[in-house]
Nucleic acid binder design. Structure first.
Lengths: 208, 208, 208, 208
DNA sequence: TATGAATGAGGATTCATTCAT
DNA sequence: AATGAATGAATCCTCATTCAT
């Protein structure tokens, strides 16, 4: 049943099937045939669209990263103050779409594979850096440079820990809402004990 | 060249080789032959001592957990106050022996495999629970029950995040000392904003 | 973009692409998709015109044989004496068109595949027989029947050997001109040591 | 059924099975499983001994070349005069062991694969060079340098042609004895028309 | 206790072929 | 007449596991 314009559809089907398979049977038992069957597609098509298994896995991870980026971009566009920006970053990371059990499972599985796979390692590094930047930027409006960097690092570490816990424990142990709350708590407690800085373009407004 | 009393030596050799292999080539490329060769042992012996590959992997993880337990027990034995106990828990988790690059890599690899493997999942759950208990107990001497539980959970999440970051980034990005310091910072900031509780057996001492 | 009268054009394109592919990447890596892409044609058309891969390969070999036949026919038409006929046969076999590197590569590749493929085997046999006949006929005007047969066989064997050498060694080792000269040398040396026979219809001419 | 010292036996079994398979079903249908089954061995052992399929094929060709070398060495050791040496070279190339139908089939199959396979190409080149040297050396005792080179080249080309003919036509068309005779005829006819040269170290003997 | 040769099931990948458009 | 997406059988290869020694 050959059709035109199927490429994006097929790719999406296969990527979703990959995430589901990882969540359902674990990374090791996730074979190309598994994924293809789950997507209702012939295994040969995987090669057609992703070249090989590493290609499929990399594309899957890229897809997850892209989803996260979209969620974040949408929320940041509506944010006006540093506080709103910080909230937007957390909202994106714990959004219904990005923090679903299957996707969190996939993230953790990829973390476990990153060692020894240069491509995955690079992607992880980029993602981590991006999260830190997204946090550090609004923080610099509130606290000193060094403190902003420190809090951004700590919060991104904490978010990773929450993902891990969520994936390993199942939803029962740590649901999305609680994870979100714990991240917020982390941020609040850090800010509460960090000296605020008056920044020039803020003073202007305040003295006006 | 069969010898008697080789069992514990062989087991240790194979377990260490497993950790090294995971760190060196990643979980997926860690084959039984790889591990055996690295240990300077015939692959057939793996079956003899661990029955099969899952057996070797479970034993390896059990070994890591046991090491952590030993480190902790030793330090807790010398701890007298709640503060010392908390420090002991952190010291154990970030000890030279438990937080080596290879071992942290192995932890993260196991996390990635836990999904779908009931045995690994169970072990993870037990470990996590143990860490939380070890933290919550001394905390209950300082803060309320609910706060103790909350801080213990948060800190164990944060420690996991630090391990992950350490494994993925390499030592360059987050060394052992810095990770230890960040965990301490987390604990300090949490305690600073949590109301202290006067407990009976402490009041006695203090009022004396 | 369906057009009429495309059949011979498409077939030629695909056959030439097959020869080029064999020369460029070797027989084994010559896939239908390879050939189609090289011809700038959809792989589906291969089935349309040649039914399947064996059909394409057989047609390709038939094409090479036909080319050789044409070259020979043209030259033979102009030949008047037995000597001219012999020269014509050699000229045809070592012509620019028939003895190009790509085509010689293709011949050798087909030889390697002939075993176990009845169709290819049959074609090889026919070709060989034809070459031998084309050589034996003019030779019979010069030497005895048995000698003619012997020299024809030997020369056709030698020509095959030259093709092989030319294909394996690349043009650097044995170019077309040298191969032609060696074949001629073979023929000359054989004739020089074979007793000539006076044939009736020749004596008439000569005694006239 | 693991045993020690099986390596050379297994390798020989697999190599012979490879030659037989190529002869029986053709190069393309010669799969690793085919060969293993034919050798009465598990397919996994192929990887154990030859790494992969190309490794097996290369080893097979190397084996054929080595066999030829042995045949030649044995005969050359017994040869005293240039004429005996030349005869030894032909005897070796058309020996019962080296010129069996299956082995000739294998040679031709390898020729067809050499294009695009650097390893096979190199081996072919070395073999061809060796044959030419083995012929040129005794020839230089009989004729001039340039003539020796020319005859050696021509004869080795002719031998290749005979192998090809023998493989394609089956034994019916050109048996081993006839092929041998044709090669001898080629050599004799060439020598008969090439001026002999008196070489110093021969004159000494003859004038003594 | 120890070896490592041998097995064979399982997985990734290739590719000739089909077929809806 | 032409496309090229899709199929799925076939092949190579890996690797956990077994077992004779």
């Amino acid at each position: 049943m050959p059709k035109v314009g199927m490429e994006p559809i097929r790719k999406r089907q296969l990527i979703l099937a990959t995430v589901e398979a990882i969540h359902a049977v674990g990374f090791n038992r996730t074979t190309v045939n598994q994924v293809a069957r789950r997507a209702g597609i012939s295994p040969g098509l995987v090669a057609h669209y992703f070249r090989d298994k590493p290609g499929l896995l990399a594309a899957t991870m890229r897809h997850l990263a892209e989803e996260l980026r979209e969620e974040l971009a949408r929320r940041l566009a509506a944010a006006r103050t540093p506080e709103e920006r910080l909230r937007a970053v957390l909202d994106a990371n714990f959004s219904d779409r990005s923090f679903s059990p299957a996707k969190v499972s996939a993230w953790v599985a990829f973390w476990g594979q990153a060692h020894g796979d240069p491509q995955l390692t690079r992607m992880q590094r980029v993602l981590r850096q991006r999260l830190k930047s997204n946090l550090a930027y609004p923080l610099r409006a509130l606290v000193g440079h060094e403190d902003a960097r420190r809090i951004a690092t700590g919060l991104s570490v904490f978010i990773d820990g929450l993902s891990l816990r969520s994936a390993l424990g199942g939803e029962a142990e740590l649901d999305r809402q609680s994870a979100r709350a714990m991240a917020q708590d982390y941020l609040d407690k850090q800010l509460a004990q960090t000296p605020r800085v008056q920044r020039e373009h803020h003073s202007d407004v305040e003295t006006a």
